[in-house]
Design a protein around this nucleic acid. Structure first.
Lengths: 143, 143
DNA sequence: TATTGTTATACTCTATAACTATA
DNA sequence: TATAGTTATAGAGTATAACAATA
């Protein structure tokens, strides 16, 4: 059984979070012509360092053939480099290129700029409230 | 110029909001076999009442042929009803069916249930912090 | 002649199944 | 024989262009 006020909070929070995330995603969409899957794969490579194609596929919850395709595009664009593993010739190690690092950094900077400028319009107290709430949001997401 | 602490808040908030929204979207995905586009069109019909196919297409930022296809599926599933406008025979008025209303309500209830149960695991003080922050998130999104 | 919606066709992204190369 | 990745093929979703019906 859920108390009324929790139901109201749940709806309100869900709608607000989804709306803000949609807005932030729009900010990202104008990014260098890369698709969401491509950017996600690149972000994972930056976070984890070099990964095999299979590990990357399972991390991104995408099938191996789809990852092959995604990596093909990223490779054509010069964003990643593929080489076969010295330890096991069947595996393909994928690494973010210099160019890939640059693009990802620029992308993140641009998105943060949008949100930062929005945050400037708030009072210091409101920003403090947001800061306090970030770890709570993370726990809700199970992170 | 952005102060260091605002940049940190910006990154942290962006990551947390995106993560939570992704998690909530996953919860929705198991919904009755309907696609995101179909659910979005239905939600818009619920919010605005009957709309013409064209108005619905432009509201959803989708081309008229795509909306025709989406409505075809929803109509096959009995979620919407289409009838030609009495005022202008070229227009098609689309309305959510009884069944459509039911499914949308159940869908929203289920998603709220997931988040509500997560919120139960927090302290009352943490929930109060979240409640206070909802309108701030809305202002960030420009809502 | 202009407008609303549909049909025809093509492109992108994803998946499963079959195949190749290495272990 | 098993595994990692790629190629072949198909399905879902979207778009632009051509068409039909109505104003």
């Amino acid at each position: 059984m859920t108390a009324p006020s929790e139901t109201v909070l749940s709806s309100a929070l869900r709608i607000s979070v989804m709306r803000l995330s949609r807005r932030m995603r729009q900010e990202r969409d104008s990014s260098a012509g890369l698709t969401a899957s491509q950017l996600a794969a690149m972000a994972t490579l930056r976070r984890h360092g070099p990964l095999t194609a299979g590990d990357l596929a399972s991390h991104e919850k995408v099938s191996p053939p789809s990852m092959t395709r995604i990596l093909g595009h990223l490779s054509d664009l010069g964003m990643v480099e593929r080489r076969s593993s010295p330890a096991d010739g069947r595996q393909v190690l994928v690494e973010l290129s210099e160019e890939g690092h640059r693009l990802l950094a620029a992308d993140q900077r641009r998105r943060d700029e949008w949100l930062s400028s929005r945050l400037q319009e708030l009072t210091e107290q409101e920003r403090a409230q947001l800061r306090a709430v970030v770890p709570i949001l993370d726990r809700l997401a199970g992170a």
